[in-house]
Design a protein around this nucleic acid. Structure first.
Length: 933
RNA sequence: GGGCUAGUAGCUCAGCUGGCUAGAGCACACGACUGAUAAUCGUGAGGUCGGAGGUUCAAGUCCUCCCUGGCCCA
């Protein structure tokens, strides 16, 4: 029970006072802040404030308009937002135009599912309308979700890849490719369902067990025998043995592929000489049911490169080629290669100039003109092929195996791999590949290894297949002559069509006939025909988003070309960074970005990718509900995003603890400057107390770190710096030491104003520094800070340099004082454990130091020691025989006693001066003076 | 299998071009305070720097191999 006098004196103290709540209550207050920003018309004001300033263009990579945002989206957008906000506060005009990727298969599939059977009676235009509505719905949902994260941007005018203007721009860029000869028609194998008569994307393929034939086939070598094998083989026939589970592709065989890194052997079995990989020959012998077999020679695959074997059924050769994809996992090490029926085969075939030969039609039948099997359904052709192979003596063995095989997701029937006509962008025309490689060297990649990553991809990638056999996308605006079938992809004509997209969008392609779309008088350059049919393929969505540099950055009045920065996950080296580069160089010979920054992926707490099936998904929505968006924002700043980013309950808990530390530090300062007006009460630096100048020097140091952290996009450095500053410099030392002065000195005294000046300047600066990350909280602090200021911290700028506040000598002295303080703290802790003291103010410290720097320091600060250590008395003596030497600083001997005198009821310091005055017997002299002031 | 990349206390991160007994904060344990109080302060414990070789007077830091993850391909 406090005595009445106690209460009276408490009234005379300057205790902290603030309405700023200790707990953020973020889930509830953030929406209020969002509303406030809207009422302020903050976005408009930011735009207005940007006028006349240099522009910083961060071009937004469009997320796919399908499904709720996940934590990876949050990471990406928050990083962008931090950068945009920090650039603004550095004095740039930094507009942010968000975008969405709206075309493509996933949306079309979702709409398919929704429509069900209904779809069959609908026209392409109607289906596309459904897709458009679907995408638009998700755009608006995701937009809300992003805004809830506190992301600033022109949300009223985002760019969508499905708007008329964007589609026109897309078609126009394609026309440019055509104009420059970068567009060509070729063949490429795709998953094909012969029953649905359609190409299938990877997402539409299901894998299921299926029984297939398993055959071993001999290909008779008919080239010139390499010298290395002369002795072993002589004049005897040599057979390369291939293994396949699709005999029906044998008619399309054009090559045999060996791995140059593997060893091969010639095995003598009966009267045959068989070529097999060394690592497989014995198991093959076993499969063939042959007991005997003898290796008569071994060799490296390279000696047979570009030699030939005879096709067992047709009068043509099969080229012996080399490829890394050949493994020892199955087969013979000699891989049957049909470029028209397999992806590996296709790619390796390109290297060797093999034809992409496909003798199979849309319905899964061999073309009528195919020798031996013409007109036969390939699904039923396996037996016939085997019989024929057997007949010519090439079949070594035929059996059946069960294995995983691709099936159509819709009709559930097994599908085939089959080359079809596709549009490509050539990597070689106009030296696109070389230009891209050169351009990569001119771009700044952050982190630097991004360069190697994309360089290797561009260096090795095949031509860009931009055809998709789908409905929901921008059409490839080519036509075919109805008479001769000639493909018309003329730049001028394509521009003419693109112009028609400008007003009404690309739907017009599906609504009108070729004759209406083409310029009047168009004739086929081959046969002079004047009737055409339209291409039905649409563009790869990567082309859509790849042209955003042309469709958005270039024409947008706020943005500047090229963009200063692209910022996406590291998967986009293959995706958007890649397609943007090729699209910009291929169509216009320009590089779309000056710098590219990548972040890693979000993983769970244990470093595993998140997935529904693993049940480890952390939805942004849930984090927002439980902790607030601010915690998600701060989490982003804790991560070194160049690597993978882990998130989980424990991590989020830790982040919210850190948040509270920062928040409470701000709150405490606000409480202590409630009666401070910077207009009138600010103390000039050279009149401030030394420790207050030290605090400002630390602020100056922090400022330098902040500047660098923002410049280098190193937000985790920023986080740690701010957090350490709050914990170490402020809370545990400076603010703790300050309490006595703040509470007990007269409210308007220089001592108190000096401290308030330091605190005010610290909080003002810190609030600005954290604003890009803690956007909600910073603005909340901002409105509580005294002084004239902008309506929102986001309209303010970062603090100028504080170089003049930096005092390295002072900091050096204080770092040693802190060491001394720490030694004393340890001694106090021992005294506390011995029940000698409770609060440190109960203590009297006696200190002795041998001559030397520590002695000197202690002498220089003998009058401040008590204050710095928050003890009632501290004395420096010549010699101390009954003290204890410090472990860390052995020159120091420390003794802790109970403080002398009585405890002052007002300031809680012990002092002999308590009781000196009869009228006020319970307070010390210092307090009496303060009360009289 | 290939390209790129990461692996320092339970967690998030420092540790520059090799040089003091490897640091910080948080979390944890114990204690103090009750005038930052669902706060604040102090003390303490905690690491064979993924592993194994090697170079060097000296290696978390350089080299080789291996292990475990991630992204993108195949």
């Amino acid at each position: 029970m406090p005595r009445s006098a106690d209460m009276d004196y408490k009234q005379t103290l300057n205790l902290p006072k603030t309405d700023f709540p200790m707990r953020g209550n973020l889930p509830k207050r953030e929406p209020e802040m969002l509303q406030r920003w809207q009422q302020l018309k903050l976005e408009e004001k930011l735009h207005a404030a940007g006028k006349g300033k240099p522009t910083f263009t961060l071009h937004d990579g469009p997320p796919y308009a399908n499904g709720h945002i996940h934590i990876g989206h949050a990471l990406n957008k928050i990083l962008k937002d931090i950068i945009i906000k920090s650039k603004r506060m550095q004095g740039f005009h930094a507009p942010y135009v968000p975008g969405w990727d709206c075309h493509g298969l996933p949306i079309e599939l979702k709409v398919d599912q929704k429509l069900g059977k209904q779809k069959r009676e609908m026209s392409k235009v109607e289906i596309r309308k459904e897709c458009r509505n679907y995408a638009r719905e998700w755009v608006s949902i995701q937009s809300e979700e992003f805004q809830r994260l506190g992301i600033f941007g022109d949300w009223q005018h985002p760019y969508l890849t499905m708007t008329a203007g964007y589609e026109a721009a897309t078609a126009r860029e394609l026309a440019r490719f055509a104009e420059r000869g970068g567009l060509f028609k070729g063949k490429k194998p795709v998953h094909w369902c012969s029953s649905c008569v359609t190409a299938l994307a990877e997402a539409e393929v299901e894998y299921a067990d299926h029984s297939s034939p398993s055959i071993y086939v001999k290909f008779r070598f008919n080239g010139e025998l390499p010298n290395e094998l002369r002795d072993a083989v002589g004049e005897r026939p040599l057979d390369f043995v291939i293994w396949t589970t699709t005999p029906w592709t044998i008619p399309a065989n054009l090559g045999i592929c060996l791995n140059p890194a593997l060893d091969y052997v010639v095995v003598e079995s009966g009267d045959e000489l068989l070529v097999l990989a060394e690592g497989l020959w014995q198991s093959v012998m076993q499969s063939l049911g042959r007991e005997k077999g003898r290796v008569v020679a071994s060799f490296n695959a390279g000696i047979f490169e570009r030699q030939t074997c005879r096709h067992p059924l047709y009068a043509r050769d099969s080229l012996i080629i080399l490829g890394d994809h050949v493994t020892l996992e199955a087969g013979t090490g000699c891989v049957h290669t049909a470029p028209g029926h397999g992806m590996d085969d296709y790619i390796v075939g390109l290297k060797y100039g093999l034809e992409v030969y496909n003798p199979v039609d849309d319905y899964g039948r061999y073309r009528a003109d195919l020798e031996l099997f013409g007109g036969m359904k390939v699904a039923e052709a396996n037996g016939a092929v085997n019989d024929k192979l057997n007949e010519v003596g090439a079949l070594l063995q035929a059996a059946n195996i069960s294995h995983s095989y691709p099936h159509c997701w819709r009709c559930k029937k097994p599908i085939i791999f089959r080359a079809t006509e596709q549009w490509f962008i050539s990597m070689e025309a106009n030296e696109l590949r070389q230009k891209a490689l050169t351009a990569i060297g001119q771009v700044e990649w952050i982190p630097h290894w991004g360069r190697d990553r994309i360089y290797n991809m561009i260096e090795n990638r095949p031509d860009w297949c931009i055809s998709r056999q789908r409905s929901w996308g921008v059409p490839i605006t080519a036509c075919y002559c109805s008479k001769c079938g000639h493909a018309l992809a003329d730049g001028k004509i394509m521009h003419h069509i693109a112009d028609q997209f400008e007003e009404v969008g690309s739907d017009i392609w599906f609504e009108k006939d070729a004759g209406e779309l083409l310029p009047a008088g168009t004739v086929c350059p081959e046969c002079g025909g004047d009737e055409f049919r339209k291409e039905t393929d649409i563009l790869d969505v990567w082309f859509d988003s790849g042209v955003s540099q042309a469709a958005v950055v270039e024409p947008h009045p706020q943005l500047q070309y090229p963009a200063d920065l692209y910022l996406e996950g590291s998967d986009q080296h293959r995706g958007w960074f890649h397609s943007s580069l090729l699209a910009a160089l291929g169509a216009r010979d320009r590089v779309p970005y000056k710098a590219v920054l990548t972040h890693g992926f979000v993983l769970d707490q244990n470093g595993r990718p998140m997935s529904k099936s693993a049940g480890n998904v952390i939805a942004p929505e849930k984090v927002i509900k439980q902790y607030g968006a601010e915690i998600l924002r701060l989490w982003v700043a804790t991560q070194d995003y160049r690597d993978d980013n882990r998130v989980g309950d424990d991590i989020l808990k830790q982040v919210s603890e850190a948040y509270r530390r920062i928040r409470n530090t701000a709150r405490y300062i606000l409480g202590n400057i409630h009666d401070f007006d910077p207009e009138t009460d600010l103390v000039a630096t050279d009149e401030m107390l030394e420790i207050d100048r030290w605090a400002l020097s630390r602020l100056a140091a922090l400022t330098e770190r902040m500047k660098r952290a923002y410049d280098e996009y190193q937000f985790h450095v920023l986080y740690h710096a701010v957090h350490n500053f709050c914990s170490v410099d402020l809370s545990s030392f400076y603010l703790d030491v300050l309490k006595d002065r703040l509470y007990t000195a007269p409210a308007k005294s220089l001592e108190r104003r000096s401290a308030q000046t330091a605190m005010y300047r610290i909080l003002d600066a810190m609030t600005r520094w954290i604003a890009p990350v803690l956007s909600f909280t910073a603005d909340e602090i901002w409105t509580e800070l005294p002084g004239e200021r902008e309506e929102s911290v986001h309209l303010a700028e970062f603090p100028a340099s504080f170089d003049e506040l930096r005092d390295l000598d002072l900091e050096e002295r204080y770092s040693r004082l802190l060491q001394l303080r720490s030694a004393i703290s340890k001694a106090l802790e021992e005294a506390r454990n011995a029940k000698l003291i409770g609060h440190s103010l109960d203590a009297r410290v006696t200190l002795a130091a041998a001559t030397g720097p520590w002695r000197e320091l202690a002498e220089n600060y003998r009058n401040e020691l008590a204050t710095l250590c928050i003890v009632s008395q501290a004395e420096l003596v010549e010699e101390l025989t009954d003290g204890k030497a410090s472990d860390e600083l052995p020159e120091l001997v420390i003794r802790v006693d109970k403080a002398e005198g009585e405890k002052c009821e007002r300031c809680w310091n012990y002092s002999k001066s308590v009781g000196e005055e009869e009228a006020r017997p319970t307070v010390c002299r210092r307090c009496r003076e303060a009360l009289d002031a």
